[in-house]
C-alpha cells in the first residue's frame, strides 16, 4: 500500500486548512452549479463569472474531505483569469493526471502547467479518492457548459 505521505502532501493540507477563493458570487451575472458525490455526501457549490470569454472570478462553497476541498481550492487558483479554452484544456489535463481521461481527448497544443495541482498526483494511488479530487472539476465542466 502506498504511504499516506503520497496522499497528504503539505501543500494539500495547506489548501485544506486555508481554502482559497472561498465564498459566493452574485448570480447573475455569475452562474452557480452544485456538485455532489453521492457516495460520500461531499458537496460543492461553484460560482463562475465569465467575462469576454475569460473566467474573471471563481469561488467555491460546500464541504468535503481534505482531497475534495484542496482540489477545489487549487482549481480556483489555476482557473481564475483563464480563457474558456484554457480552462477546458486544464480540466482535461487534470483528469488525465487522475487517470480517468486519455490524452487524445486533449485539445491540440501544449499541456497547461498544473502548478500546485501536481501535488494531487499521489491521489491516483488511492483509487477510492479519485472521485473526491475530480468533484470540483466535474462541477466546473458543468458550469462552463452553461456559461
Amino acid at each position: 500500500m502506498p504511504g499516506l505521505e503520497d496522499l497528504y502532501r503539505e501543500i494539500i493540507l495547506d489548501h485544506y486548512r486555508n481554502p482559497r477563493n472561498r465564498g459566493e458570487l452574485e448570480t447573475p451575472p455569475a452562474i452557480s452549479v452544485d456538485g455532489h458525490n453521492p457516495l460520500c455526501g461531499d458537496e460543492i457549490t461553484l460560482y463562475v463569472l465569465v467575462e469576454d470569454g475569460v473566467v474573471s472570478e471563481i469561488k467555491t462553497n460546500g464541504q468535503g474531505c481534505s482531497i475534495s476541498q484542496s482540489s477545489a481550492s487549487m482549481m480556483t487558483q489555476a482557473i481564475r483569469g483563464r480563457t474558456l479554452a484554457e480552462a477546458e484544456a486544464l480540466i482535461h489535463h487534470f483528469k488525465h493526471m487522475m487517470s480517468i481521461e486519455d490524452h487524445h481527448h486533449d485539445e491540440p497544443g501544449e499541456a497547461p502547467a498544473l502548478g500546485d495541482l501536481e501535488a494531487l498526483q499521489g491521489v491516483v494511488k488511492f483509487p477510492v479518492r479519485i472521485k473526491c479530487a475530480v468533484l470540483a472539476w466535474n462541477t466546473l465542466s458543468q458550469a462552463l457548459e452553461s456559461a
Binding site: 500500500m1 499516506l4 496522499l7 497528504y8 457516495l39 460520500c40 455526501g41 461531499d42 464541504q63 468535503g64 474531505c65 481534505s66 482531497i67 475534495s68 476541498q69 488511492f126 479518492r129 473526491c132
Partner: peptide
C-alpha cells in the same frame, strides 16, 4: 477531520470502517 480522511488513516492500519452518509441522508 472529514470522515473520508479518518477512514483513510484507519485503512493504513487495516481498520475497516465506513465513512459517509450511510444511505440515510435525511437523518444526516
Amino acid at each position: 477531520l472529514h470522515p473520508h480522511d479518518v477512514s483513510q488513516i484507519l485503512d493504513e492500519k487495516n481498520v475497516c470502517v465506513r465513512a459517509g452518509h450511510h444511505c440515510a441522508k435525511p437523518l444526516m
